Measured scan of single mutants.
Amino acid sequence: THFTSQQLQELEATFQRNHYPDMSTREEIAVWTNLTEARVRVWFKNRRAKWR
Rank of each mutant, 00 (worst) to 15 (best):
T1S: 09
T1L: 12
T1K: 14
T1N: 13
T1I: 10
T1Y: 13
T1Q: 11
H2V: 11
H2Y: 13
H2Q: 10
H2M: 12
F3H: 03
F3T: 03
F3L: 15
F3Y: 12
T4P: 02
T4V: 02
T4G: 03
S5K: 14
S5Q: 12
S5Y: 13
S5T: 13
Q6C: 11
Q7Y: 04
Q7R: 03
Q7M: 07
Q7N: 03
Q7V: 09
L8K: 07
L8E: 09
L8T: 07
L8R: 09
L8C: 07
L8S: 06
L8Y: 07
Q9M: 15
Q9L: 12
Q9E: 12
E10D: 12
E10L: 15
E10I: 15
E10A: 14
E10Q: 15
E10N: 09
L11T: 00
L11A: 01
L11E: 01
L11W: 02
E12P: 00
E12F: 05
E12S: 02
A13I: 10
T14G: 11
T14V: 15
T14N: 15
F15H: 01
F15P: 01
F15I: 01
Q16A: 10
Q16D: 06
Q16S: 11
R17T: 10
R17Y: 11
R17M: 12
N18F: 06
N18Y: 06
N18I: 10
H19S: 05
H19N: 05
H19P: 10
H19D: 02
H19V: 04
Y20F: 11
Y20R: 04
P21A: 06
P21D: 02
P21N: 01
D22H: 05
D22N: 09
D22Y: 04
D22K: 06
D22Q: 06
D22R: 05
D22E: 03
M23C: 07
S24V: 10
S24R: 14
S24L: 12
S24F: 10
S24T: 11
T25F: 07
T25V: 09
T25N: 05
T25D: 08
T25C: 09
R26M: 10
R26H: 00
E27K: 15
E27P: 01
E28P: 00
E28D: 09
E28K: 14
E28Y: 09
E28I: 13
E28F: 10
I29S: 00
I29A: 01
A30T: 02
A30F: 04
A30L: 03
A30N: 01
A30Q: 02
V31I: 14
V31Q: 13
W32C: 11
W32V: 14
T33Y: 08
T33W: 07
N34H: 10
N34T: 05
N34K: 10
N34F: 07
N34P: 01
N34D: 08
L35I: 06
L35F: 03
L35Q: 07
L35H: 04
T36M: 03
T36R: 03
T36P: 07
T36G: 04
E37L: 05
E37M: 05
E37H: 04
E37Q: 06
E37P: 08
E37Y: 03
A38Q: 12
A38I: 12
A38N: 09
R39D: 13
V40E: 00
V40R: 00
V40G: 00
R41G: 05
R41K: 08
R41F: 06
V42T: 13
V42A: 14
W43E: 05
W43G: 00
W43P: 00
W43Y: 02
W43R: 01
W43F: 02
F44E: 00
F44L: 02
F44Y: 06
F44D: 00
F44N: 00
K45Y: 10
K45H: 10
K45D: 06
K45V: 10
N46G: 07
N46D: 10
N46S: 08
R47V: 04
R47Y: 02
R47Q: 04
R48N: 04
R48Y: 04
R48M: 06
R48F: 04
R48A: 05
R48C: 00
R48I: 06
R48H: 04
R48S: 02
R48K: 03
A49D: 09
A49L: 08
A49S: 08
A49W: 07
A49P: 01
K50P: 04
K50H: 07
K50L: 13
W51Q: 07
W51I: 06
W51Y: 09
R52S: 10
R52T: 09
R52M: 12
R52W: 11
R52C: 08
